[in-house]
């Protein structure tokens, strides 16, 4: 059986908020190392890969592999009944028809319990190769969100270019063009504001802003975001969570002019 207790319901609420635009139904794969999820959007352009390590829960128990097939819209409806600060416990039997969610408020005088029906989801699983990315950019997640939003007003696509000058986000549309350049920046007192650029070779790739905007819904999960790029491979956008848990998005590049 599965029993996984989260100190704050906010984590699961934010995870669901972050992925439900991309994916409507998916399996939460539970095993003794934690709860994972991998799903592609309908158009097979973007993929979300999330893993909440067992250390992110206290306690965590999962005796055997269990796939919880969940409709994220339905899960979100149930999670709306949880306050951000509530303690959230997920429970399921070994071959479950439902997942049980319990929300306890901080003063433990209110306990809400919901059963969410599960579904059989036959999901394609992609092997993501380990990649030595040519460029890795870490920046405040709010900054990435702002760049994505601002450029979305101009164009459907953005070209992310990384060279020894730094990183630039450029787009061109009917009304004109825009370009945002970021340079390395270190703030010892506020490391969340740092911009770090590590590059082994120059990279320039074009991506659909619509999907980047979707990824940015995860901004509330982490103060920093990491963009990993290599020429001619999908972009990885990673939001690191506590205890080595993570939510990663992959986006296939656009090609040609």
């Amino acid at each position: 059986m599965l029993e996984a207790r989260l100190e704050q319901a906010a984590l699961l609420k934010k995870v669901v908020d972050a992925i439900k635009e991309l994916v409507q139904e998916c399996n939460f794969d539970c095993n003794d190392s934690g709860i994972g999820l991998q799903a592609m959007d309908n158009s097979h352009v973007a993929l979300v890969s999330m893993f909440l390590k067992s250390e992110s829960f206290s306690p965590f128990r999962c005796d055997r592999n269990i796939a919880l097939g969940i409709n994220l819209n339905a899960l979100q409806k149930v999670l709306r009944a949880a306050q951000n600060e509530d303690i959230l416990t997920l429970k399921a039997e070994d071959a479950p028809d439902v997942v049980n969610l319990v929300f306890e408020n901080a003063t433990a005088d209110r306990i809400s319990e919901y059963d969410l029906k599960l579904m059989d989801i036959d999901q394609e699983h992609l092997g993501i190769p380990d990649t030595d990315y040519a460029a890795q950019i870490s920046m405040p997640s709010s900054e990435f969100q702002r760049i994505t939003r601002d450029l979305s007003a101009i164009s459907e696509s953005v070209t992310i270019e990384c060279n020894k000058e730094g990183v630039s986000f450029a787009c061109e549309g009917d009304i004109g063009k825009g370009n945002i350049k970021l340079r390395q920046y270190t703030n010892v007192d506020k490391p969340a504001e740092n911009v770090e650029v590590n590059m082994t070779e120059p990279v320039a790739l074009t991506f659909a802003l619509k999907y980047l905007g979707n990824f940015c819904k995860a901004s509330g999960l982490s103060e920093q975001v990491r963009l990993c790029l290599s020429n001619e491979v999908p972009l990885m956008v990673e939001y690191a969570l506590a205890n080595n848990s993570y939510i990663r998005f992959y986006l296939a590049p656009k090609i040609g002019d």
Binding site: H44, V45, L47, L126, V233, K254
Partner: peptide, 14 residues
């Protein structure tokens, strides 16, 4: 207009 690639061109089904 650039053409959108498909992810399955890069990642193999397992």
């Amino acid at each position: 207009t650039p053409i959108q690639n498909d992810l399955s061109e890069f990642f193999v089904m397992v």
